Every structure is written in C-alpha cells, then in structure tokens.
Amino acid sequence: MTAWLLDPGVLHLNHGSFGATPAAVLEAQQGIRERIELNPTRFFLEGEYQERLDQARRAVAHFVGADEAGLVFVTNATAGVNAVFRSLEPSLEPGDEILVTDHEYNACTNAAIVSASRAGAVVTTAAVPFPLEHEREVVDAVVAAVTERTRILLIDAVTSATGLVLPVAELVARLEPDVRVLVDAAHAPGMIDFDVSRLGASYVTANCHKWMCSAKGAAFLWVRPDRRDDVYPAVISHGYNGGWPSEGGHLHAQFDWTGTHDPSAWLTVPDALTTVEAMHPDGWPGVRNVIRERCLQGRERLVEALSIESPAPGDMIGAIASVPLPPADNSGSAIFDPLMGALRDRHGIEVPVFTWPAPPERVLRISAHLYNQQGDYDRLAEALVAELGT
C-alpha cells in the first residue's frame, strides 16, 4: 500500500464511502495550496485559477464523455443534486411529483423532499426489490411508479447501500423528455464504463473523490444543452448578474466562482486520473476490470460463508457489492448496525453494515480497489462467522 496512505493496521473494505487518495495526488494538492498562498490575489484574480480550472474540467470531461460547456465542479454529488432541485423549484406546481427509489442515498432524497415541500409538490418512491434476479425488475418498478404528475426522476447509477449498477440508460430512454432524469452517479466514474453524453439524461452529477481517487471535495455536475440556461448553484454569486467570471457560458459563470474556497481538490483531479491510470498496464480499463473481479470474488466468499444465494446478478455489480445479513435489533442506530463497530474494534476491518431497508433488516457492503486482495475477503468472512455464529 505504499501508493496509499491507508493505515496498514486496518483492513480497508470501504472505499465506496469516502474513497482513498494516492499519496502522489495529495502531494500535488499540497503543491497547489502552496502556489495559492504565495500570492492569493494573483492566483485567483489574474487568470491562473481559471486556467487551471479549465484544464481540470477538460480532463474530467474527456474521462466521462461530456462536453466542457456543460460540466462544472461541485464539492460532492449531493451538492450537484441540490443545485438541480433548487433550480427546478420554480417550475414545480402543487401536486407535481418527484420520483425516487427506495435505494436512493438518504441525503439526496432529503434534498428532493425539501424542494418538493417548497413548491407544494410531493416525493414518491418506487420500491425496487433486493435481492433480485434481473435488471428488468428495476425498470419495471420505476416505470410502474411514474404517473402523469411525475416531473423528475432521481436515480442512482450505482446504489449506495445495496451496491447495484442500475439500468439507467434504459430508464432514460423510456422517460425522457417527458420526465426529466437526474442521475446520481456518485460511484460511477472510475468504477464502471461511464459515458455521460450517451446516457441522454437531463442532469448527471458524480464524485471524483470516490473511484477516480481525487482528493476529497471534488465532484462534477453535467447538464444537457437544452437544460443549461435554467440551472444555478445552491450558492448564488457574482456570475448571476454577469460579474466575474463572465466567460465560458452560463453554467461556468454560475458555478466556477461561488466565493472563496480551497479549489485544490478540483485542480488536482487530472493528477488523480493519471496516477491511477499508471497503476495498471492497461490503464483505466484494466483498473476497472481488476476491481470488479475482486469485488465479485469477495462477494462469492461472503455468500459461501453466510450460506445464502447471490442477491443480484453479476452484471449488476461494479466494485461494491452488498449481501443481506440475518435480521437483528438495530434500534440503537438508524443507519449503521452495531456489527460494523464490532468488525472494526475486534477484527480490525473497516466495512459498512447498513440498516436497510428498515430494522431489523440489514446489509453488509464490501468495496474493492487496487489495494485490496482476495485474502481480505477471506478474513472478513471468517470474522463474520465468528460474530454471527453462522
């Protein structure tokens, strides 16, 4: 793990929650910070910030198949979701519906609830089964929940708690343009082959600090050309009335400067892309193949240890995968199960155990990245057997 700063005394099987940043990327980030502090006025006001930001944007746009004019940086995918919902509030009418699934990330569902309440709209939920046998179960569940009042669908590219790669492109083809689709792709870039423009969705937001392995606080929002003029950041700043920055189109003017902050995570995303690419002789395709295979192998080891069937087909798995656990009384925690603490404190394993979809049901989710090996999942399986008595 010399390329990473992860504690060697802990088995890290939770890349999916916060990512892990290679040491070389953190060094590049510190170099940017030092460059800023040499003369902050010059850096931000005399063009260097914008030039470096445009370079980073270009690299990300190329990586995810997006056009630069439609791509802006945000701090995380949740911020991207909030920006879209806040921008849509004026167009929503009482009784309109925002559709989510019961696999959606809690923070983003909350953003939908708040925006809906401001407009007198409602949030409806499509119940997607898990375990499941085929991705068409996802399509059928979502399409069945669409009504004549559905205005926007918020859908994960890869679900958080359940670790499923969803058939987003098929849903977009079925629903757009009558129903706008906002893709919460927090986990997708770097984990799966992901092309923003080919999806056809109205909006796509994703993290760079998860599977792209950038420093924390880097994400992007992409907006389809016909939707761009009506999208604004949650924080309104100088660009709203044509102030600085005033070039680069509507989205860039609104999002590129929303006040003073540390932009180093954004500016070093290209360093993350090249650093991880160099970790495999086949570059990023090789990285994606390796981490997916490790994840699938890890899931099979857990399925065997728990004496259960695989809860989802292999073609719906990227580099995170969840398995159901025996039900337990989780009344002391609304999200995380006490088993998570036991695995960390007694076995030195960092892996999330979620209460899902509601107590007493729960799932354990593994992640795989290049610093993980097959033996990691053997160790987890043995710890689970010890804790659960299976």
Rank of each mutant, 00 (worst) to 15 (best):
A107I: 04
D54C: 09
E97Q: 15
L53K: 14
A28S: 12
R52S: 03
R57L: 03
Y49G: 02
T21V: 13
T101G: 10
Q55Y: 00
E97V: 10
A77W: 00
F18Y: 13
E46V: 01
E51D: 11
A23W: 00
A61L: 05
R42Y: 04
R57F: 01
G47M: 03
V100I: 14
E37Q: 11
Q55H: 10
I98Q: 06
P22F: 00
P22C: 14
R86P: 02
S91E: 09
Q50Y: 05
N39G: 02
V84R: 08
N76Y: 01
Q55L: 10
R33I: 13
N82L: 11
F73V: 05
V64F: 02
P90T: 09
E97C: 08
E37Y: 07
V64D: 02
E51F: 06
V74P: 04
R57E: 02
E34T: 11
H103L: 09
D96S: 15
A28T: 07
L92P: 03
T21G: 13
A66D: 06
R86V: 09
L99P: 07
E97R: 13
A79Q: 03
Y105F: 09
A24I: 05
A69W: 08
Q55W: 00
R33Q: 15
N82T: 15
E97M: 09
H103K: 11
G65W: 15
A56V: 00
R42F: 04
T78R: 10
L53T: 07
F43I: 04
N39E: 04
Y105W: 06
E89P: 03
E48L: 12
D67M: 10
Y49D: 02
A28R: 11
V72C: 05
N82W: 07
F63A: 10
H103W: 15
C108W: 00
F63I: 01
E48D: 06
F63H: 09
F43K: 11
P40C: 06
V74I: 07
A83K: 04
R57K: 13
E97N: 09
Y49F: 15
D54W: 05
E97S: 11
V25Y: 04
R86D: 15
A66L: 10
